[in-house]
Amino acid sequence: MNTPVIRIRDLSTRFGEVWIHKGLDLAIERGEMVSLVGGSGSGKTTLLRMVVGLLLPDQGDIEIFGEPLFGGGIARERELRQRFGVLFQHGALFSAFSVFDNIAFPLRELKRYDEDAIHDLVMLKLSMVELLPRHGRLMPAELSGGMVKRVALARALALEPELLLLDEPTAGLDPDRSDSFVRLIRMLGEELGLTVMLVTHDLDTLAALSTKVAVLAEQRILAYGSIDEIMHIDHPFIRNFFLSERSVRALQNSGLPAVPN
């Protein structure tokens, strides 16, 4: 058995007196595209931020590629961080840099490539996310919401990571843009053999992208499985989330069996 790409064991998080997670376990295998869903305030984004090392859990541990995120010196931590890319909800592009420099940033950090190689790599990433070379000269403030996400995706993929983490990838995009962005992520994910973990509450995104769904409720991963399996679980949150009228429509559109009997 391979080591899981992400393994979370017995994780507990507390905000003041409130426990957000309690004894949470999750293991994500290589090649899966996992959507993390849960009610608002259930700690989805918090969990994602812990996986990428921006927050520390109060208890429990998280391993990525079988290694802990912290410890072992800056060089090791850096090397591990180069193996995953993060797409933040609002893109988090460096506003002082042009699109080109944003995508080039992680490459320049490596100090392994000369400027010519970096130029070629950036152009390759731009075309991967279906942007044109001339877009490289724009500043983040001049981009539309959809383009910001594409550039952010290109930057997240700059170092050819094995794992991609997405925080609300389609939030703030209109349905059309959102569809094409989801298609792009799925295509790239399959082409590059990425493992993907995303936080979303958009059912269209979930249905189109995920091979598995992890439901975060009652402070733990309540269920983890394919969409089909999840929908057959009788739990108030899952019923509300997947079987409301709106959800049924969304799932029907995506060609999945909507109403389990």
Partner: peptide, 13 residues
């Protein structure tokens, strides 16, 4: 704008 978080996830001090 989460730029500092983005730096942190890239392993930049």
């Amino acid at each position: 704008t989460e730029e500092i978080d983005a730096l942190a996830t890239m392993g930049v001090q």
